[in-house]
């Protein structure tokens, strides 16, 4: 589904990604973790071409992301993405947020898009909020709407960029529950997150990044039981001890 081969990226002379290779197969759930500044968000943004990269290749469902001939908008319409800061459109109601891209990008009718949007809203438990505006919802609710908005496009896979980092602690679980449910339904997912509990419960594989490189790429049992690298061990020790 997603094939990342030898991807490197620089900002000027600073190298953000160093020769990263990994792959995500259909139905797999991958958690990407690592200290801040390790390049994990950048890597996930390369997958749908939000961040350009200078070397290497990323293939998503047979389409090369880095190829200048690729219609990126078309590809992105099929790859769902959820952001740290939700990025709902504040000038639109919740239903409009859910419908706009379905109508403008996929060419669905307004009724069809509304229908689909409301169904997904129900699924994330927010049907009652349909006519409100993003500013009237809590962070956790906004993030669930953002997930529903991405799902409304019928994506072939979902990218999560630190979906719970901007949330108050008591709201983290409501978002993780939605993600867990999604994973159990067989959605292909690549999640940048610090939620190791979620990784333990849901992930098939864990990727650990440090200083722009993929240091560890293991199935979760191996990763949590005996990580090979010192850096991953240190990271786990810090993050699991509180």
């Amino acid at each position: 589904m997603i094939q990342i081969t030898n991807v490197s990226k620089h900002y000027g002379s600073f190298q953000v990604l160093k020769d990263c290779s990994t792959s995500v197969s259909k139905g797999e759930v991958i958690v990407v973790c690592g200290p801040s500044g390790s390049g994990k968000s950048t890597l996930i943004k390369c997958v749908n071409g939000l961040e350009p990269f200078q070397a290497g290749e990323i293939i998503v469902d047979g389409t090369s992301v880095g190829d200048p001939k690729t219609n990126l908008s078309k590809l992105r319409a099929r790859v769902g993405m959820v952001f740290q800061n939700f990025e709902l459109f504040p000038h639109m109601s919740i239903t409009q947020n859910l419908a706009i891209a379905q109508v403008k990008v996929l060419g669905r009718s307004q009724d069809e898009a509304m229908d689909k949007g409301l169904k997904l809203l129900d699924r994330v438990g927010l049907k009652a909020q349909a006519d409100k505006f993003p500013g009237q919802l809590s962070g956790g609710q906004q993030q669930r709407v953002a997930i529903a908005r991405a799902l409304a496009m019928d994506p072939i896979c979902m990218l999560f960029d630190e979906p719970t980092s901007a949330l108050d602690p008591e709201m983290v679980n409501e978002v993780l529950d939605v993600m867990t449910e999604l994973a159990h339904e067989g959605m292909t997912m690549m999640c940048v997150t610090h939620e190791m509990g979620f990784a333990r419960r849901v992930a098939d594989r864990v990727i650990f990044m440090d200083q722009g490189a993929i240091v560890e790429d293991d199935d979760k049992e191996t990763f949590f039981a005996n990580p090979r690298s010192q850096r991953a061990q240190n990271f786990l020790a810090k993050i699991l001890h509180h």
Binding site: L50, F83, N85, I100, L106
Partner: peptide, 23 residues
């Protein structure tokens, strides 16, 4: 307008023109 808004619009498959006009 925060940069993330354009990123979100692009991630939904909108073209640059659409994200400008609609978002």
């Amino acid at each position: 307008v925060p940069k993330g808004q354009i990123a979100a619009a692009s991630a939904l498959g909108m073209t640059y023109g659409q994200s400008m006009r609609l978002v």
